[in-house]
Simulated scan of single mutants.
Amino acid sequence: MRKLLSIVTLSLLLTSCMSTEEKKIKAEEEGNALVSIKSKLVKGAGDALKTDGKEALESASEGVSEAFKGITSGYDKSINQAKIVPDSTFSKTFEIGRTQKVYSDTTNSKKVSVYLVSNENFEGKIKLKAFDQSDKEIGRSTMKLKVEEDEAQFFDFEFDNRTPLLQATYFMISGKPTVQ
């Protein structure tokens, strides 16, 4: 019985052991299989880029565009934006669009630029007052203007150089037509 067991064990060992050549062939086959799988993945990715790549790039471009819009929006909400509060009569005559505080180091000028759209004809004076966080007036600018109904443009209200526009938290705008 021992002899039989020894013979069976020896034959199993001989048949289960691979020669070096057989090991190399098996390793090569496994390597070829892995390369084949990876190349199919790369081919699949390439095919996907051909068909879906345009959509992916369009989506990425839209994302970049939205990021730039966010930058612009952030700039609009930054320290340069001027919060303009119209009085009740002014609101009937004008709509207020984009606003901006403008500081020039070269000319030492300070102004607030306001885009106005007229709802009706207007000829008279417009006054823009600057207020700080304590609701105290810190400066004012007045200009004469004559606009036709549905006209729109930027108007620059010049302030005295000593006006601390950086401290202005809001501006009050009012208009008084010239008596005819």
Rank of each mutant, 00 (worst) to 15 (best):
L145W: 03
E151Q: 12
S91C: 03
G63N: 07
G139C: 00
I126M: 14
Q133W: 08
L57Q: 07
D156H: 08
C17Q: 06
I138K: 04
S134Y: 08
E123R: 15
E158Q: 13
S141Q: 06
V35R: 10
G175E: 10
K144T: 11
K136M: 11
G46L: 11
L10Q: 13
A48P: 00
K26E: 08
E66A: 05
C17H: 07
V112T: 07
D52M: 06
I37V: 11
G124R: 05
L166D: 14
G97P: 05
Q167D: 13
T9C: 12
F157N: 00
I173P: 06
G53W: 00
L14A: 11
S174Y: 01
D76A: 11
I79A: 03
Y170V: 06
E95A: 12
T89D: 15
F154E: 00
S109F: 15
K92Y: 05
R162H: 13
K83M: 09
E22P: 02
V8Y: 10
T99S: 00
G139Q: 01
M1Q: 11
T20E: 07
M18C: 05
T169A: 10
V35H: 04
M1T: 13
T93Y: 04
F171C: 02
G46Q: 08
K146F: 02
T163C: 06
A45V: 15
I71Y: 11
G44Q: 13
Q133K: 10
I79C: 01
I7S: 08
K26S: 04
A82H: 02
A56S: 05
T178W: 14
D47W: 09
K50D: 11
A67G: 07
F68E: 10
S65W: 03
K69Q: 07
V102R: 07
E28F: 10
E58S: 09
S113N: 14
E123P: 01
E148R: 13
Q180M: 07
G97Q: 00
K127H: 01
T93H: 06
K111C: 09
G74A: 06
A45E: 11
A67P: 04
